[in-house]
């Protein structure tokens, strides 16, 4: 079985595929849970996840996964934007967590500065309002999920972005 990031041509292999998870404000509880779930699925598919968020969003993950079973590299969100904008780094796929207007702005920015395949993960009480603002190319995965992550997990499982 060929995993993401591998190449059979010439018998050589490339670096593993990478995915950037751009976290939003952690005020909606499902974000941390879904981020850990998504990282697990990505890693199982041979994709290396990297997380970019503000201090609170990153710390929630670091504390929840102290042995780093799922979590790998974690970076400040502003630094990630700077590195990608300055063409110093990029990723194969990018998952932007969206539950407010700022999340849509970050997703549009990632779509403009990065070559990554873009996924918008939209959730929260008013998720439909945010979905309507997405007018740029991306795959939108959306569900009304605030405290219970299962509707959003189900929506992600239906798309299987790690297999894309």
């Amino acid at each position: 079985m060929v995993e993401a990031g591998e190449q059979l041509a010439g018998g050589s292999t490339t670096q593993p595929a990478t995915a950037l998870l751009v976290l939003g404000c952690p005020q909606v509880p499902v974000q941390t849970s879904i981020a850990l779930y998504l990282m697990n699925r990505l890693k199982k598919a041979g994709i290396t996840p990297v997380v970019a968020g503000n201090k609170a969003a990153n710390t929630l993950l670091v504390v929840a996964d102290p042995d780093r079973h799922y979590l790998g590299e974690v970076m400040d969100l502003d630094r990630a934007v700077a590195l990608i904008s300055d063409k110093k780094r990029d990723f194969d796929s990018c998952y932007v967590f969206i539950h407010n207007d700022a999340g849509v702005s970050y997703a549009a920015t990632m779509g403009a500065i990065s070559k990554a395949k873009l996924f918008a993960i939209v959730y929260g009480e008013h998720y439909e309002e945010q979905v309507k603002k997405i007018e740029f190319p991306c795959t939108t995965i959306a569900a009304k999920a605030v405290h219970n992550p299962l509707p959003l997990k189900k929506a992600i499982d239906e798309v299987k972005p790690w297999a894309a």
Partner: peptide, 8 residues
């Protein structure tokens, strides 16, 4: 100037 928790 946009921040994740405080909008623009």
């Amino acid at each position: 100037y946009t921040k994740p928790c405080h909008g623009t």
